[in-house]
């Protein structure tokens, strides 16, 4: 079993135990009943993952905006969720669609923004602590990655397998593998000095 699939499985199990019900069950029930508490439970289960993913690929304002749009779409059209896949994969696909549209509108898709500059000051590291310096460097290096590599890396860290990442990003598995390899290699190379 690979590290990717182990990570994915552990996150799924964690999700099941933390909420009591799987996200797939919750969206299914919400589709049929429209109960607000089911939607809230789904939101609580996935909102942090989604927000962080979007924040890593854009900035605070865009991430909030896209999160809101995505969750409203889930609320209004839960029947669009296909039961064959994971709810989180569908959610991320919706969000990515909206994000790409937004970035295209504002012509920011190709530019490699350093979103960290937009992050609040309390997130910045203490120069004296090596761990925080490493975290700070990681933040900087992650946001400096090309969009596709950053996206693939984030999705993998969120527990998606290669096939799911390929589906979410409309890419070939080989392309995803390549992006992940470059992303990790770049991060390792640039973080090496902080690690030691």
């Amino acid at each position: 079993m690979t590290i990717d699939s182990t990570l994915s499985l552990s996150l799924n199990i964690k999700s099941m135990f933390s909420s009591g019900q799987t996200n797939e069950w919750l969206i299914g029930r919400f589709t049929s009943t429209g109960e607000r508490k089911l939607f809230e439970q789904l939101y609580d289960n996935c909102s942090n993952d989604l927000y962080h993913f979007l924040l890593t690929l854009s900035d605070h304002a865009t991430a909030k905006d896209i999160c809101q749009k995505t969750w409203l779409k889930v609320f209004e059209k839960p029947h669009l969720y296909s039961e064959s896949g994971r709810f989180l994969a569908w959610l991320f696909t919706l969000a990515r669609h909206a994000l790409i549209d937004e970035l295209r509108k504002s012509q920011r898709l190709d530019c490699n923004e350093k979103t960290l500059l937009d992050l609040p000051s309390e997130g910045l590291p203490n120069e004296d602590s090596p761990a925080l310096a490493l975290a700070d460097a990681f933040n900087q290096e992650l946001t400096a990655l090309p969009f596709e590599q950053r996206e693939a890396f984030c999705l993998q860290q969120e527990g998606f397998g290669l096939q799911e990442i390929a589906k979410i990003t409309y890419s070939k598995i080989e392309t995803v593998k390549s992006r992940l390899r470059y992303a990790k290699s770049s991060l390792r190379k640039n973080l090496e000095k902080y690690h030691d």
Binding site: Y43, N48, Y51, C67, L119, G123, A135, L142
Partner: peptide, 26 residues
Amino acid sequence: LTSLYQARKKQYKSPAALKRKVLKEA
């Protein structure tokens, strides 16, 4: 890398105001 990513994630959680806004609009 995973630990660093998870640590970063803990720092940037979805704002509570966003949940209220989403629910209100929904």
